[in-house]
Each structure stands twice: as structure tokens, then as C-alpha cells.
Design a protein around this nucleic acid. Sequence first.
DNA 1: CAGGACCATGACAGTTGCTGACATCACTAC
DNA 2: GTAGTGATGTCAGCAACTGTCATGGTCCTG
Lengths: 173, 173
Amino acid sequence: MELFSEHGYEQTTVAEIAERAGLTERTFFRHYSDKREVLFSGGDEFRDAFVGRLEEALDSMSALQAVTIAAQAAGASLEERVGRDFASARQAIVSVNPALRERELIKIADITAAMAQALRLRGVDEPDASMTAELGMAGFRVGFDRWLAAGEQRTLPGLIHEALGRIPSVVGS
Amino acid sequence: MELFSEHGYEQTTVAEIAERAGLTERTFFRHYSDKREVLFSGGDEFRDAFVGRLEEALDSMSALQAVTIAAQAAGASLEERVGRDFASARQAIVSVNPALRERELIKIADITAAMAQALRLRGVDEPDASMTAELGMAGFRVGFDRWLAAGEQRTLPGLIHEALGRIPSVVGS
DNA sequence: CAGGACCATGACAGTTGCTGACATCACTAC
DNA sequence: GTAGTGATGTCAGCAACTGTCATGGTCCTG
């Protein structure tokens, strides 16, 4: 994060990162599958928070409600684990770099696919399972973007809830 | 496509592609920004079909209806321009390769952002603009995936329409 | 405590994607 | 006919990534 903030992501070489960490370049690639992964290390916990909470919630409510709960839980987990300041600094680096955006998008897509699979296992048919998962993730993304907007005071789960709460009127109008 | 089908995407070098095309490797990179782009050459037309149709449709109907029309138009354009067989062969290569999936996802994300921007210019506020755009793209994706499923007979626009038509009941149940 | 089975790291060479710089050649405008 | 423009070739070079082998530490076991 230090090096990326100072010189930008592309201008920072893996050799420099390794040196700053007191490691060899070869060792870096043993810990991270590629250069981009340094910025995505907490991804597994995030996915597990998302999907795990979804599976729990599915016992007692509709699919979309459960997905909403899961998205909010993932947001709460993110807010607690890393905080808004870190998330904002990280996003400033990721959002301006196509290669990093791509990596972020595929992580999100994989979580969406995992949610759809969980819904299918609970008896939700296609295309409803995929659409519901996509809706939930759309709510997360829209809420997340607004959470990092300048001057925003609300909590991430609150913004996610608001985004998903807009669906009925978007559909109805 | 030939080389990728024979040896796989990663096992095919740019030098081989260039040689098969009777070009130099350097010339390849003058036509395509990177190795992945050979498989995404029609992307601009696709995006224009999507966003252009959305802007037209916004004059006479609700935002979600317009997005639905746009997604169906993009689907029709795709079906007509490349056909199901080619799309299927291409997807078989793209879907198994993370690097190619990433490229596909960022193209989709850019179109989604362009749709949200078009909606905002027509007076749709946030978060509704982003949510509507995300909904429309979700419908396209779900429809597209089913279009390529084995044994599927329906048209791509028809499947997109069906996917988006499921939203009210997903929300309501 | 000796010996061996690991596991993380270092060292090093090699491949491939991609870029900058310069030269060449065909074509067009005037 | 000449100058300009655009597409291509040539070449050198960087940086991301990988395979392979060596080294050193830790832990387990007899």
C-alpha cells in the first residue's frame, strides 16, 4: 500500500515490494499468486461472511430477504475488519487501475456464483436463483460505492439496505 | 480461435498467433492492446447497441422497461452478428480461463456504468439509476448463460425478457 | 541427543507478454 | 516528382511469472 500510494501500482515492481518486505521476488510469488493479489488478501473471509450468512438466513425468510441480510452482514464484516479509511485508500488504488478492477470484478462474480449455487441447493430454481444472487450483489456494490463517496456518513449495511430497498419502486414505476 | 481451440489459450503464444496471421508479433500488439483482446473485438458495437437502444427507449417508458428493451436489443444484435454457435465456441474458451473472464467482466461493468450514466442524464437519481442498470445487466447475463446451455431452443432476447420478468415475483415472494 | 522429514526461503535461469525507438515501404495529395 | 502519412518490420529491453535445485530451520521420533 505504501509503495502503490507513492508511485502508483504499475510503476511499482514486484522486486521493489519484495525488497521492502525483506523478501525475495521468488518468495513473494509463493505467498501471492500474482502481483495483484497483495491487494486482495482478505477476499476469502469476505466471501465466507457473505455466503455463510446467506445459508443461515435462508432457513427463516424469502430468498431476496436472505440475500439482503447476507449483503449487509458482509458489509458489516468489511466495515469492522478494515474500516472506511483503509477501504477508501485501497479503492483509490484499485479503481484507477484496469487490471486491479478486473481482479475485483472476478472475485465479486465468484461470490455471486456461490450465492446462486447456495440458493439452488435450497430449492430456488433458475433463473430466480441467479437473478436473486445478482440482485443482492448489485445492492452491495451500489451501497459500497456510495459508502466511499465524499461526505457520506451512513454505515455500509445501512446503504446496502437502502439500495436493495429501492428495487420494489424501481420495478413498480 | 483455431489456435486457442487446439492448444488452449495459455499454451498459445502471441508469436504463434502472429505467425498464423502472417504478421509480426509487434504488429499484433498494434492491432490489439493485449493478447486477450483478440477475443473481444466486437465489444464496442455491442456496447453501442446496448446504450444506444437504452437512450432511445427512455423517451417513452419507465427506466426498467427501457433497460429491458436495451438488453433485449443487445441480445438480438449479438445473436444476429455472431450467432449461437460462434458465441458458444467463444464462451467455451473464455469461461475456463480466469484472465479472459476478467476481461469479459470489466467490459460488462463498463457498459453497466454507461447505462447508469445515461439514466442519470435522463433524471433518474441514485441509487435508482445504478440499481436499474445493474438489474438490466443481470438480466442479460442470466439470459445469456441460459441461451448457451445444452438443449436450449429459445432466442436470446426471449431468455433475457424472461429473466427480467422474474424480478417482480423474486421481490414479492 | 542424533537423524530424518518436512517447510519456508534463497539463488538462478528461462519463457512470455508487452513497449519504445527507429527503419522501410506503399500510397496519396499537391 | 516530392513530401507526407500510415502500416509494418526489426531489434533491444523490461517486468511478470515459473521450474528447479540448494540451504537452513523446526519438529518429531527413536
